[in-house]
Amino acid sequence: MKFRDRAEAGRGLAERLLYLKDSRPVVLALPRGGVPVAVPIAEALDAPLDLLLVRKIGAPGQPELALGAIVEGEPPQTVMNDDVVEMLGVPPNFITEQAADQLAEIERMRRRWLHRHAPVVPYSRTVILVDDGIATGATVRAALLALERAGAARRILAAPVAPREVAEALRPFCDEAVFLAEPTLFGSVGAFYDDFRQIEDAEVTALLEGEAKWRRAD
């Protein structure tokens, strides 16, 4: 399966998720690529759309190696890879400092894209977490765990494509996972799109503002 662009992939997911409309869900997109996928889902389900911002906590001297992640919320949630932390002997104060730095970046991202709009609260709600594709699943796993801690009543993961083994590994962390394709031979997310261009900050803001205006008009 190959998608023309993220919007087409979002429409395909929306068809699979229509049964959730009566549960009054909220749609949370993982930026940047998840936003154009999430817009048609939010419109089809008449659901509020927001971002869920996640930042990796990198290991000392190896910033690409994830010790864990911090996920925005009230309060923010820190999800750690305990095996990696123990293996590297990372001191707690390093994690605390890095988590604070990444939380500050999350706050800057929200101001840049949402102009200080208050985030949607997932407590007691059905939450649909949307991305444009999943490669390793590390960020999505952290987000799902954070949503559980934040009291989401039901967590639905929706993405156009994920490797079959990653899809299976993520299912225990949510109430339902919806994928349009689960290939055994994966390569990269971009290989499943004709148009997989980078989404710029201005486009994220425009999509979110356009969705908000459409909903107010409705």
Rank of each mutant, 00 (worst) to 15 (best):
198 Q>G: 09
33 G>Q: 13
199 I>D: 10
58 G>A: 10
42 A>H: 02
130 V>R: 02
103 L>K: 03
37 V>Y: 01
80 M>G: 01
8 E>G: 05
195 D>Y: 10
149 R>F: 07
101 D>E: 15
115 H>E: 14
37 V>L: 01
207 L>E: 12
213 K>S: 03
69 A>V: 02
28 L>T: 05
210 G>F: 06
163 P>I: 04
94 F>G: 01
182 E>C: 04
31 P>T: 08
67 L>N: 02
119 P>L: 05
82 D>E: 15
209 E>D: 15
132 D>S: 11
63 P>M: 12
111 R>V: 05
47 A>P: 13
128 I>H: 06
87 M>V: 03
170 L>P: 02
217 A>L: 13
54 V>R: 03
105 E>P: 01
102 Q>A: 04
94 F>V: 02
6 R>K: 12
125 R>K: 15
212 A>C: 00
115 H>I: 00
158 A>F: 10
8 E>L: 11
126 T>E: 11
7 A>I: 15
132 D>M: 10
154 R>C: 13
171 R>Q: 14
159 A>N: 13
130 V>P: 04
208 L>T: 05
10 G>C: 07
156 I>D: 12
52 L>Q: 03
12 G>P: 04
112 R>F: 00
17 L>P: 08
105 E>M: 01
175 D>T: 08
112 R>G: 00
36 P>S: 09
71 V>W: 06
143 A>S: 15
155 R>V: 12
73 G>L: 03
97 E>C: 00
5 D>R: 07
148 E>G: 14
151 G>W: 06
37 V>A: 02
34 G>L: 10
198 Q>K: 13
210 G>R: 07
12 G>W: 03
57 I>G: 08
173 F>Q: 01
114 L>M: 15
126 T>S: 11
104 A>K: 13
210 G>D: 06
209 E>Q: 15
148 E>Q: 15
11 R>G: 02
184 T>L: 13
51 L>C: 05
135 A>C: 09
213 K>P: 00
178 V>G: 11
119 P>W: 05
70 I>N: 04
205 T>Q: 08
200 E>H: 14
118 A>M: 03
89 G>H: 02
140 V>F: 01
214 W>E: 15
135 A>N: 09
16 R>V: 01
168 E>A: 14
79 V>R: 03
188 S>L: 04
57 I>E: 10
110 R>S: 11
132 D>I: 10
17 L>R: 06
17 L>C: 08
22 D>M: 07
91 P>S: 03
177 A>I: 05
29 A>Y: 03
200 E>L: 14
36 P>L: 10
191 A>V: 06
43 E>N: 09
103 L>Y: 12
32 R>I: 03
23 S>M: 14
111 R>P: 00
1 M>K: 10
16 R>I: 01
11 R>I: 00
75 P>K: 09
80 M>N: 00
134 I>Y: 08
107 E>N: 11
170 L>C: 03
24 R>N: 13
215 R>W: 08
99 A>H: 09
31 P>M: 10
140 V>C: 01
173 F>E: 11
173 F>D: 11
198 Q>I: 04
196 F>A: 10
75 P>A: 09
47 A>K: 13
49 L>D: 03
167 A>R: 06
38 A>Y: 05
3 F>Q: 07
4 R>F: 10
201 D>E: 14
